[in-house]
Simulated scan of single mutants.
Amino acid sequence: MVELGRFDRNLAHIIVGRLDSEGIDAVAFDGETSIGDGSYLLIPVRVMVDEDDLAAAQAIVTA
């Protein structure tokens, strides 16, 4: 898997859903980091995709 980008927590999950609707498997990493101390909204979430899907995923995100 390769990193598509880093986004705020909510946007990362929206992007994962959008990519999934286009048939691209994606995973949000770090979404639960530091949830215990309340700083989870400040930590960017990495959206990861298969290397073969990176170009298509980038096109969807920039559109």
Rank of each mutant, 00 (worst) to 15 (best):
residue 1 M to L: 08
residue 1 M to D: 06
residue 2 V to Y: 08
residue 3 E to G: 12
residue 3 E to Y: 05
residue 5 G to D: 09
residue 6 R to W: 04
residue 6 R to T: 06
residue 6 R to H: 05
residue 7 F to A: 06
residue 7 F to P: 02
residue 8 D to P: 09
residue 9 R to P: 00
residue 9 R to H: 12
residue 10 N to K: 12
residue 13 H to D: 10
residue 14 I to S: 09
residue 14 I to W: 03
residue 15 I to Q: 08
residue 17 G to H: 02
residue 17 G to R: 08
residue 18 R to F: 00
residue 19 L to K: 03
residue 20 D to R: 14
residue 20 D to W: 07
residue 20 D to V: 00
residue 22 E to G: 00
residue 24 I to L: 01
residue 24 I to Q: 01
residue 24 I to S: 01
residue 24 I to K: 02
residue 27 V to R: 14
residue 31 G to C: 00
residue 32 E to H: 13
residue 33 T to E: 14
residue 33 T to I: 11
residue 35 I to Y: 05
residue 35 I to C: 03
residue 35 I to V: 15
residue 35 I to F: 06
residue 38 G to T: 07
residue 39 S to G: 07
residue 40 Y to T: 06
residue 40 Y to V: 07
residue 41 L to H: 11
residue 43 I to Q: 08
residue 43 I to R: 10
residue 44 P to V: 10
residue 44 P to W: 10
residue 45 V to G: 08
residue 45 V to M: 08
residue 45 V to Y: 05
residue 46 R to Y: 04
residue 46 R to G: 01
residue 47 V to E: 11
residue 47 V to K: 08
residue 50 D to Q: 12
residue 50 D to I: 01
residue 51 E to I: 13
residue 51 E to C: 02
residue 51 E to Y: 10
residue 51 E to W: 08
residue 52 D to Q: 12
residue 54 L to A: 11
residue 57 A to I: 06
residue 57 A to G: 07
residue 58 Q to N: 12
residue 58 Q to K: 15
residue 58 Q to S: 11
residue 59 A to Y: 03
residue 59 A to W: 01
residue 60 I to C: 04
residue 61 V to D: 06
residue 62 T to C: 00
